[in-house]
Amino acid sequence: MDETNQYAAAANEETAEEELELEVSETANDAFPIEDNVQAHHSQIDRETYFTELFRLQHELVKLQDWIQQCRLKVVVIFEGRDSAGKGGVIKRITQRLNPRVCRVVALPAPNERERSQWYFQRYISHLPAAGEIVLFDRSWYNRAGVEHVMGFCTDEEYAEFFRTTPEFERMLVRSGIIVLKYWFSISDEEQEFRFNMRINDPLKQWKLSPMDIEARRRWEDYTKAKEVMLAKTHIAEAPWWVVEADDKRRARLNAIAHLLSQIPYGDVVRESPRLPERIRHEDYARQPVPDEMYVPERY
């Protein structure tokens, strides 16, 4: 095997290893007992097909990233959905191979006292992309249409004002040259119950379940009504909603990434392949030894 193929093979192995680690961490508790008629968490796509398609799509994402940089596009992608719908898993797969200086994730905590006194959209504006950037919102200003409304964190007047303002706010973003894509990840009642039980029974995932998540589970129907109102009032031509069927995590990831790629026309960016220069060496240079006590113990 020549050197070029050797490097390519090593890179492919590293890529597969990274994704396998993520996959194993997310499926380790799939043996949790559930009702016989609830099998959605078992993917209809086998692992080999999933990996093959995921790596192909991630290669296309890198091409899209280069195109966005070259054409100085500004892209906002909003990910919304119920707790445990799989938004984070999709975002991980999108960003996994991309330059964090080009593609960044925004996941804002609950607003502080000062932010609550500001115009509602104000704290999101500073995170909008500049030319050549992609911003992925892991939850967004649509918190007001969901958790804030259902849990009573906003008034009825603030809720109504949100729906009056949001369509025009997003039209303003689009008129300013920002591409706005909005995805709702849809899971069934039974699948969410399964995923919540997985988290409860996995010490590595219990941190993902907050008291708010538990309460949201109890209020499933209230969230369903809020989602229906949100989609009806903010599905606009300039920034439509796209619904991702997410009971099958693998399919949801592939479908969401493929759709995202289809929404922004892009092409190949021709780049000159970098070449490593010869390293400069000096005869009077000698590498100094590191004291033994500074080394991390090799336990593995």
Rank of each mutant, 00 (worst) to 15 (best):
D222I: 03
N12Y: 08
Q192V: 03
I187D: 08
I134F: 01
F169G: 02
Y50L: 09
S186Y: 04
D36G: 07
A8R: 14
R101Y: 10
A256Q: 11
R299T: 13
D2R: 09
W242A: 07
H59Y: 11
R279K: 12
E221Q: 15
Y183Q: 05
G132N: 05
V76L: 14
Y159A: 06
W207F: 15
F79D: 02
F163P: 01
T27L: 10
S140D: 00
A246W: 07
R275A: 14
E228M: 10
V62C: 09
A237W: 01
W220F: 13
R116K: 15
I257V: 11
A8M: 12
H127Q: 11
D292E: 15
H259D: 15
R287C: 09
N143C: 05
E193R: 14
L261M: 06
N5P: 04
Q58G: 03
L173S: 05
I91S: 05
H149F: 06
A216H: 00
W141Y: 08
A8H: 12
A110D: 12
N99S: 08
D202P: 03
I125F: 05
M230K: 08
R219G: 01
E113L: 08
Y50A: 08
L261A: 03
I179N: 10
F194K: 10
D284Q: 09
T155M: 05
I45Q: 04
E228W: 04
R287V: 14
R82G: 07
F163V: 02
R171L: 07
Q70V: 11
Y285E: 13
